[in-house]
Amino acid sequence: MMWEHMRTAGRQALGLIVRLSHVLPLVAFLVIWELIAPSPTSGLPPPSTWWEAVKAMETSGVLGEAIAHTAWTFVAGLGLACVLGLVMGGLIALSRPLEEATTWLIDFGRALPVVVVIPPAVLVLKYGTTLELFTVCFGAIWPIVLAVVRGSRDIPPTLFEVGSVFRLSAWTNFRKLVIPALLPAFLSGVRIATPMALIGAIAVELLTGSGGIGTELSLAAGRLDTPAVWALVVVAGIGGWIVNVLSNAAFRGALRSRGRIS
């Protein structure tokens, strides 16, 4: 009995070690870089100098402020895109001809790179929070609109017959039938929109100097502080990874609680 336990524990430990060893190529890559990197002032400074740069930005408070700014822009812009995307998608789904008529318009909006939208938006909105929110929202809204339109099409008509049989009010109908039926499609749209919102936030910060990681990146590049540039890029990369993991977990969690997937 005891022996069995130890064997499974041993096997689990071995599995963990094997899994951890999968990070080795990444670590080896950084170590080799550290050893053969030309100098801290070159374009490819050794990774240890990135760490120094992170610590310097951390103690001066620049890093925390930048992360907070980017996170706020990202969350607020994505939230706005969710609300507006839900409303737009819902309105478009009301009529089939309207859905056809907006197809090419939405395709065009979706095809435009978010950076390209910033200069015309600057002319109208000037620099500031509105511009930031508009950019993030424009970059992220399209998959949500499309998902809501598609999701509304897939609601079985019998669901509304159920509603009328039970004589539900319009509000109850909406709350108890439409929202649960739309949720999976809406969430899958949000999942696609999430990385786009982060790209939009960094793009507007890079181009307009409005603060946050993007602005710190362009400032660091401007003063040729290469370790700081690499440090900020690593921060942005980790941010992207965390956002991806969180949005996947939220998507699965929300669907599982509704019994859609197990």
Binding site: G43, I202, G214, G239
Partner: peptide, 18 residues
């Protein structure tokens, strides 16, 4: 997994200095 979730736009300043 790390690089695929990377916001590629953030790579522009790095390429600039590199």
């Amino acid at each position: 997994d790390l690089f695929r979730t990377f916001p590629p736009i953030a790579f522009v300043p790095v390429a600039l200095v590199a």
